[in-house]
Every structure is written in C-alpha cells, then in structure tokens.
Design a protein around this nucleic acid. Structure first.
Lengths: 194, 194
DNA sequence: TAACTGAGTTGATATTTGTCAACGTTTTTT
DNA sequence: AAAAAACGTTGACAAATATCAACTCAGTTA
C-alpha cells in the first residue's frame, strides 16, 4: 500500500529513493481504511494526521450556524487532505473531513513529518514543492473567487479539475465553488445553449 | 537597509545569524526604492523578483476585461509581495503590483533564493515557515470567501488586519474582500447601528 | 414489490450585491 | 489659491444569487 506513495515521491523528487529511504518513509506513514461517510476529522478536534490518499475520494468542509456545509477542499488519489492549521498549531479544527468513497490513506503526524524531513532531504524537497504548488493553487482560487462570476468559476473548474466532475456530485462541486446546487444547475443549462 | 530583514530573520528562525550568514543574505537581496503609483510588476511580465517590504505599502491586483481592478494581496512593512506562480514558473503574470505608498523593498530572484537555501539552512527554515503560514492564511481566506457574507468577511478582516485599515482606503479593502466600495460603505453603516 | 433516499431540475420569490449617477469632502496637483 | 483628482456616501434601479417548495428520476433499502 505504501507503493503508491513511493511512486508519488519518485515522480516529484530529483533522485530516486534508496531501499533504506523507503523504509524510513514506510515507518512514518501508517495505512488506514476509511469507509464512505466515515469521519476522518470532526469540527473541534485537533487534526493529528495529514493523509495521503492512495485510493478513494474525500472532502473537507465547514458547517455554518444554520447547518449548511461549505466544501473547502476535495481530494482523490494522490491528493493530500488535512487541516494544516490544526495539524501545525494543535488547535481545534474548524473543519470536518470525511470519506466520500471508501478510501485507503496513509497517515503521518506532524512530529514524524519534522523527523522525516531531517532524516530525508528528499522528503523536505517534496514538501517544499507541495507547499509551493499549494500556494499557487490557493492564490488562483482566491483570485477566481473575488473577481469572477459563478459561471466563469465553474468553467475554470471544469478545465482544472475534470477528474473531480466524475467523482463528486454537482451539489458538492457547487459548494466547492461557493454557490448553491440550484445556481450551478442553472449555469449548466445556460452553458449548454452556447 | 538590510537591517530590517536581519531582524525579521532573527525573529522567525531558531538560532541567530552569524556575521558570515548576514553577508550571504545581504548579497542575495538588492535594495530598491519604489515611489507611490510606480509599478513593481505589470500584467504579462515575468515576475523576476520577490520583494520584502522594509517600509511602505504595496498592492497586487488583477485587471478584468472591463478594466476593473481586483485586489488579491496587500502588503506593508515585513510583508512579502510577488507573483509566486510567475516567479517560479517564469510564466507571464496575471497580476499588477504597484506601490501604494513610497516604499523601500529588498529583492531576490528565484535562483538566488535556491542558492541561499542551500548555503543557509536557516533561510530554508524561514521559507518553510512562511509557506506554511501562507497556506494557512490562504485556506482561511478561501473558507471565508465561500462561506461567509460580505458583512462577516469584513468583520473578520478588521480583526485579522487592523493595520491595513490605517494604510489603505476603503475602496481597496472592499476590493480585497471581493465587494464594491458602495457595498462596503453600506455594510459599515449597518454595523454602526449595532 | 413498495418505500425511501439522494441527486438534479425547475419555478416563484426574496435577498444580496452590483451599477450608475450625483453629491460633499478631503487631498493632491498645478 | 485655484483646479483637479480621489474618496466616501447615498439613492434608484438592475443583476446575480439564494431560498423554498415541488417534482422527476435513479438507485438503494426494506
């Protein structure tokens, strides 16, 4: 099961991992199965683990006072999920994370991450790369949310995340875009005409 | 002028910099003065430098087809500005960055950053810390923009960036929040009643 | 098979926010 | 000091989006 992570690592770092390196990685990440609808993190809990998704699909969302869910992050194979703030600061999380499909994940704690970064420069390198990519993606999402209409945000989404369309229902995509399912439905209808 | 950066570094890293380290940092960062309204980056250009603001205030924004400006980032003393995507990928930037007040900044190229990270682990440490903090802040901003009303977003803004209120006019704050200056004006009026 | 649940659509209506124009005030420029 | 520009506010109206309710159509459960 760690194979998927090794592949992912080899793909993103300069030189391939030795057997010894793999052993270090393997020891740092614990496998876990999460069944559909099962929670990985609940609002108010501290996020002890960051998760690498080997198979499956997960979602992260906040619940407002009226009980409405607002999806802030989606992940499928080869994506990471967790609440970075809670994981780093050990603060209670504002988010829920659950499995949308039966999933297999690899978990790592904050302290094991720090340790692994010291033991394995390639891991440090990977995290730096991921952080950089994440920052860029987050900036794009912010830009899109403050400057584009719902219609354009959806058009962008289709282009940048075509795989998500196959895995998550429309109401979840809508929430991810910050609109209601009805609005998304109407936008799609409009777009068909063109 | 590099003093401000040394102070910033010492504040954010574990052990203080040696004289030799400071020399390395000093060589990597070039000082520059930018006068109010002067551009640091123009849409379509490659962002060659990331900037540490020593004094002054800057803004980063995108311009839509209708010529409207959408502020995506604001920075004052001890903040960083630049288009990460363009700076890393050498791609043409979608953003403009200009000085809102006369500013003094310290500039570093991508390649000098990579070099400095190798020569000076403390600098690597700093960047990792900044990336982490940036990711957390970006996540919060995304969450707020998809799940809160304009009124709550402004309330949050006041709490998290009280210093910006002193330095930027309301229309810029409004744009940063993804609303118009008129809407912000009305929100403020409403809030006064309570 | 029948009941049930979740997903998507549609219509009617309400709310939020944007647009445009006007105005007073302050700040900057000449 | 005069003129110009930028800022914030307000009103009337328009557009975008949310809300609520009803309905269809699977797929799942009992």
């Amino acid at each position: 099961m760690h194979e998927a992570l090794f592949k992912y690592l080899d793909k993103h770092i300069a030189s391939p991992l030795s057997e010894k390196d793999r052993e270090l990685v393997k020891n740092a990440f614990s496998p876990m199965k999460i069944r559909r609808r099962q929670y990985f993190l609940n609002q108010g809990e501290v996020c002890k683990y960051y998760a690498f998704i080997v198979t499956g699909a997960m979602r992260q969302y906040m619940v407002d006072e009226k009980g409405g869910e607002h999806i802030v992050h989606l992940g499928i194979e080869n994506w990471w999920v967790g609440d970075r703030e809670s994981w780093v600061m050990l603060s209670p999380s504002a988010y829920c994370i659950d499995a949308w499909e039966d999933s297999e994940v690899l978990l790592i704690t904050r302290s094991d991450t720090v340790k692994l970064m010291q033991e394995l420069p390639a891991f440090s390198e990977l995290l730096h790369f991921l952080d950089e990519r994440n920052n860029i993606a987050a900036q794009k999402r912010i830009t899109s949310s403050i400057s584009l209409t719902a219609e354009k945000r959806y058009a962008d989404f289709i282009i940048s995340h075509p795989d998500f369309l196959q895995r998550f229902p429309q109401r979840i995509i809508a929430s991810y875009l910050g609109i209601t399912k009805e609005t998304l439905s109407r936008i799609r209808k409009q777009s068909l005409k063109k």
